[in-house]
Structure formats: structure tokens, C-alpha cells
Design a protein around this nucleic acid. Structure first.
Length: 427
RNA sequence: GGAGAGGUGGCUGAGUGGUCUAAAGCGCGGGUUUGCUAAACCCGUGACCGGGUAACUGGUCCGCAGGUUCGAAUCCUGUCCUCUCCGCCA
């Protein structure tokens, strides 16, 4: 969320930003409530001070009569405090709800527009889009031919959107994890395997809404836990409530988790196969930085995502995500879209990874701060996240780009040492 | 799952209803002494929300949320977490 005072003092800027982002947050109402809240806060503080003074006098009272009189005065003041506090907390809760719905500010260079049509292509990957001498099949056909994917089995056990990876697909998944994790360890990331569930409070801090009709999140009945939609949630939550020494920044962590998404309302849109599923494995990058280093870190994370897909030999493009498509927490976001030759009539770009600079938006909710040695006070860190590999979509891209006329699939060079073969075939 | 113990500043740790405005030590910063370093000694040293150009100043905070009371770190309830023992278990 944004800083309360900042919104109050920059209401017009914030309103314009909401409009650019297609967010329906009620900034005007927030400003009115916040002003009221501050006035009530003043009341509470004044009454508290008076009541404290009276209470202190009671211990030193000369006689019973004086003591009883002061007690009565104190009681009256405390009642007034309670009433004022109730009003204050009502106002705080209401303004807080509004504040949390206000999206982050937007990077001045991010394209402004309503949705993904306004996204701006900013780069292409090293691998050129391949020309096929045959009509490329989609990944479902490729995978099923090779006995790597059982969608019906997944549907029988858990419903549409679930699947079994089998045989060489299992080797590919593990190889992709190994490849990504080893690359990131080499870059100084601390590798982790994170919980697949998290407290709703953490999800909300990251910017997810665990319950309600629009939710993308599976929640566990009778608990305050939800299945995570990405390890961004657990990695960001890991340092919640902490004050870090500035000289330990940046902190770079990566994590493997399973990701669970209800995909509510997504039916009919690219639902075939592994592209949009309820569960997949992901290797995620996360960074905590000083505020003036986060732009640089975003470039770095984007560079790593490019390097991963360059090394995998998958053609892709990088898009600078438009304001209307940024969601709540991101200040700027870049997506990598891989070329998927089996999609649509003659192939389409499909999002495979994404990296965001969330500035202090998540840190403020999660209360993650830093301290500079010998300086008074603390400040919020900036948080960034980026996908190293989302296995299901990486599989789509690899299977479709590396397929051969005979139905086999060539294993990307960098994965061979973990897959243990150069080519995936039926035999 | 059962029984018990505990959660206090950056860290260790005292504090069982009002001099807590949280002891003391460590750490950190500054100073004195000093050829340099060290030691010794002295002084200072939390966060958050407000007000003020500033010096300064009001309020809140002892895991978290409630409650009792004029007054709570302290008493009560709930909750989260940690540790010990027992049970169960991959």
C-alpha cells in the first residue's frame, strides 16, 4: 500500500494513477476519512494525556477524599478515551480498506494503457523463431505422443486443470529446477524450498486477496492458511516484520514451490493443456533492496530471465507491461513471452515469466524495513520478484519449439546433463 | 494430540498493580587519557504516529488481540510462536 500521508498530500496524482491503472479505488473518500481520522487521533492523544496525569496523582493523593475524587475524574476520562478510540479504530479500519485498494504508483516510462494491447515490446531473445518443415503440433499432442502427460488422469483425480507429468516430463521438470537453481546459486541467490501454504496475512501483505469471489487463491477451510499462488508470497513473507541493516542489502533469495491458482473466470481462454493449470512448480527469484537500487535490480532480474531462456534456446520477446495490466503492487513489470508454435493457427507468444519492482508497496504492508548504521529511524525496503522458471509453461515452450518431424523432442543442450539424454522418443 | 516452561530494547537479561520515565551487562556512537593500538574512565544510545524551520514536544509500543482497574510489562481470557517431556507418524 501507499503511505497514508503521501496519498493525502498527493491526492490528484494518486487519482490519475488509479485511472491509468483501471483501479476503482475511492481516493476522494479516503482523503476525507483520513482527515477525520487525524482529528480523532488528536482527541485520543489529548484525552490520554489528561487521564495519565490524573492517574499519576492518585498514587500520591493526600487522603481518601482526594483519592476518590481523582478516581472518578479518571474514570470519566477513560470512558471518553474508550469512546474516542472506538471512533478512531472504525475510521482507521475503513480508511485502511480503501488505502489497501489503491494500487502502487507507476514508473514514468511504463506504457500507459488499459491492458495487454498497450504493452510495449522492448527486446527479443537470442534464439530466432524457428521455421518448421512440417506443421508443428501443440504441446499436448507432442507430450501425449511421448507418454509424458496424462490430462485425463489428472482430471479424474483432481478435476480439470490438473495433470500427471510422466516419464521424461518428470526428468524435464527436475532438470529445469536444477538448471535454474544452479544458475541462481552462481548469481549469489540463497536457494530455498518454501512452504506451499502461507497465512492469509502474508498473502495480503504481498497483495493477494485470499477470499471472495474474485480470488485466485485456494484457502484451507477452518484455518487462516492458503495454498500459495507463487513463492513470491513465502519469500517476501520470510522477512516480514524485520529491520535489516542497510549494508546487508540487497538480499537475494530464490525458492522452489508449488503454485496453486483457482483461475476463476479464466475458462475458455487458453485452457488446453499445461498453459493454464491449477498447479505447477516454479523457481522464483526475490530481492530486497535499498530504494535507489530497485530499478537496477529489476534490470538485473530481467537480464537473468532472458539469460535462462536464451540458454534454454527458446525464442521470446520482452514486453514492458502497460499501466492497466500491472495489478496492485507492481511499479513496473516486464514479461517474457515465449514463442509457442503450436498455439493458435500459426503460433503465438505466450507469457512464460514476469518480473516486477514493487518498490515499498509490499514492504509497507509486511513491515520490512532497513536501518542505516548511525542514522536515526528506519525506512522501508523495496521488494522485487521474478520468475526464473515456471515449469508448466517452460514445458509448453520447450516441447513445441524442440519438436521434430518424427514426433521426438530434442532436449535443450543445457538440460542434457540432468535429463540424461539428447532426445526424447517413445522407445 | 497430551503435560509443562517461556516470549521484555540490536543482543543477554532483571522487573509479580502506581517513583517503570523498563535495572544491569554486552554491542554501538562520542569524549578524556595516550607515540600508535588497546585498556580504563565519562557521556550518549529503541521503534512508530502526530505537532514544530529547529531546539523540542504529545501519544502509542514489553509476541499479538481483547478484558479487569483511576492506573497493567505485572492480574484474567483468547491466540501465535519457541523450548522440554510424552504419544503418534514419513
Amino acid at each position: 500500500m501507499l503511505d497514508r500521508k503521501f496519498v493525502l498530500e498527493n491526492a490528484e496524482l494518486v487519482k490519475r494513477n488509479c485511472a491509468d491503472r483501471g483501479a476503482d479505488a475511492d481516493v476522494a473518500r479516503f482523503v476525507a476519512l483520513e482527515q477525520e481520522r487525524r482529528a480523532r487521533q488528536g482527541d485520543v492523544e489529548r484525552l490520554n494525556r489528561e487521564a495519565n496525569e490524573v492517574s499519576k496523582g492518585i498514587g500520591k493523593a493526600k487522603d481518601d477524599a482526594e483519592r476518590e475524587a481523582k478516581k472518578a475524574a479518571g474514570r470519566q476520562l477513560r470512558e471518553a478515551v474508550t469512546a474516542a478510540e472506538q471512533e478512531l479504530s472504525r475510521l482507521t479500519a475503513e480508511s485502511d480498506t480503501l488505502l489497501r485498494r489503491i494500487p502502487n504508483l507507476t514508473h514514468p516510462e511504463a506504457p500507459v494503457g488499459p491492458g495487454d494491447t498497450a504493452n510495449r515490446e522492448v527486446a527479443k531473445g537470442r534464439t530466432p523463431v524457428r521455421t518448421f518443415s512440417f506443421k508443428p503440433a501443440d504441446h499436448v499432442t507432442v507430450a501425449e505422443r511421448l507418454g509424458m502427460l496424462d490430462l485425463e488422469g489428472g482430471a479424474k483425480v483432481a478435476g480439470h486443470g490438473f495433470y500427471f507429468l510422466k516419464n521424461d516430463a518428470v526428468l524435464l521438470e527436475l532438470a529445469l529446477q536444477q538448471f535454474a537453481i544452479n544458475l541462481l546459486i552462481g548469481e549469489g541467490f540463497t536457494p530455498t524450498i518454501t512452504p506451499d501454504l502461507a497465512r492469509n496475512e502474508i498473502l495480503e501483505g504481498i497483495g493477494f486477496i485470499p477470499r471472495g469471489p474474485e480470488t485466485q487463491i485456494y484457502s484451507v477451510d477452518g484455518t487462516d492458511l492458503s495454498l500459495v499462488a507463487t513463492a513470491e508470497i513465502t519469500l517476501g513473507g520470510l522477512l516480514s516484520g524485520e529491520v535489516l541493516d542497510a549494508d546487508t542489502l540487497p538480499v537475494k533469495i530464490c525458492g522452489i514451490s508449488h503454485c496453486y491458482r483457482t483461475e476463476a473466470g479464466a475458462h475458455g481462454r487458453a485452457t488446453r493443456g499445461l498453459y493454464r493449470v491449477h498447479q505447477f512448480t516454479k523457481v522464483e527469484m526475490f530481492a530486497f533492496t535499498l530504494p535507489d537500487k530497485s530499478d537496477e535490480m529489476l534490470d538485473y532480474l530481467r537480464g537473468l530471465e532472458c539469460r535462462i531462456f536464451d540458454e534454454l534456446g527458446v525464442p521470446y520477446r520482452v514486453v514492458d507491461t502497460a499501466s492497466g495490466d500491472l495489478g496492485g503492487p507492481a511499479y513496473r513489470k516486464f514479461d517474457l513471452e515465449a514463442w509457442m508454435p503450436g498455439r493458435g493457427e500459426a503460433g503465438e507468444w505466450g507469457e512464460v515469466t514476469s518480473t516486477s519492482n514493487c518498490t515499498d508497496y509490499q514492504a509497507r504492508r509486511l513491515n520490512i524495513r532497513y536501518r542505516i548504521k548511525n542514522e536515526k529511524g528506519t525506512h522501508f525496503v523495496h521488494t522485487l520478484n521474478g520468475t526464473a522458471v515456471a515449469i508448466s509453461r517452460a514445458l509448453v515452450a520447450i516441447l513445441e519449439n524442440y519438436q521434430n518431424a518424427d514426433g521426438s523432442v530434442t532436449v535443450p543442450e543445457v538440460l542434457r546433463k540432468w535429463v540424461g539424454k539428447d532426445k526424447l522418443t517413445t522407445c
